[in-house]
Simulated assay, not measured.
Amino acid sequence: MKKIVAGFLILIFGLFITYKYLYHDHRDISSEKSLYTLTVKDLLKEFLANESSANRKYLDKAITIKGKITSIDDKNSTIVIDDKVFVIMSELTKIELNSNVSVQGRLIGFDSLLEEIKIDQAQIK
C-alpha cells in the first residue's frame, strides 16, 4: 500500500513539474531593458564578420535597433528597417515610411542567405 501511495505522489509531482514547464508565463520584452542599442549597419557588420559569435551575443535578447523604415506592412504589423532588419511589431502605431526610428524587440535570428536580421515582439521607442 505504501508503494502505491508513493508512486501516486511521484506521478502527481511529475505532472505538476511538466505542467509548470509547458505553461509558464510568457516573456514581456516591452518591460525588459535593452541590453544593446545599435544601428542596423553595426549589427549587420557583426553578423557578417562572425555569425556564431553574434548569435551568442544577441540571440533571444532584448535589443534596440536604430535606422530608417524602408517598408511597412499594416496587414501583418511588420516593418523593415534599412532593408536589412525585418521587424514583427507587437502593435503597429502611426509611423511613416522613410522616418528614422528606434525599435526595441527580441532578436530571433539572422538569415545569412538574405543577410536579414529578424526581430519580434517589437515596439517603437
Rank of each mutant, 00 (worst) to 15 (best):
I124L: 14
N100S: 12
Q121C: 07
K75C: 00
I117V: 15
Y23S: 06
G14P: 06
A6L: 08
L113D: 14
A6T: 02
I4Y: 12
F110N: 10
F16E: 05
G7T: 01
D25M: 05
S90M: 06
A62I: 03
T18R: 14
D74E: 14
D111C: 04
L15A: 09
K125F: 12
K84L: 05
N100G: 04
G7P: 00
I124Q: 04
V80A: 09
I10T: 04
A6G: 00
E32A: 13
K45C: 02
F13S: 14
L92R: 08
Y21P: 00
L38F: 12
V103H: 04
T39M: 10
I95Q: 05
T70Y: 03
I10H: 00
Q121Y: 14
K2S: 04
G14V: 02
G7Y: 00
R106L: 10
K118I: 04
I117Q: 12
I81K: 02
I119Y: 03
F47W: 13
L9W: 00
V85K: 04
S71Q: 12
Q104G: 08
T70V: 07
R27E: 10
I72A: 06
Y21H: 13
S53D: 14
L113I: 10
G7F: 01
L113P: 00
I88S: 09
N55S: 14
I65L: 05
Q123C: 01
T70N: 08
S77W: 04
D82H: 06
E115T: 13
S99F: 01
Y19M: 05
V85C: 06
S31P: 06
V103Q: 03
L113H: 11
T39W: 07
V101Q: 12
K45R: 15
D73F: 07
N76P: 00
G14Y: 05
I119H: 03
M1N: 06
G105W: 01
F110R: 13
K94G: 05
F47I: 04
T64W: 02
I65W: 00
S30A: 14
I4A: 11
F47S: 06
R27Y: 12
H26C: 02
K94E: 13
D25W: 02
N50A: 08
L59D: 03
H26T: 09
Q123W: 06
R106H: 02
F16K: 11
D111G: 04
V103F: 01
K68F: 09
N100Y: 10
E46A: 06
S99N: 11
G67Q: 03
S102I: 05
M1G: 13
I17K: 14
S34L: 07
I124S: 03
E96F: 08
S53Y: 14
I29M: 12
Y36V: 06
F16C: 10
G109P: 12
N55E: 15
F8A: 09
I29Y: 13
M89L: 13
L9P: 00
I119K: 03
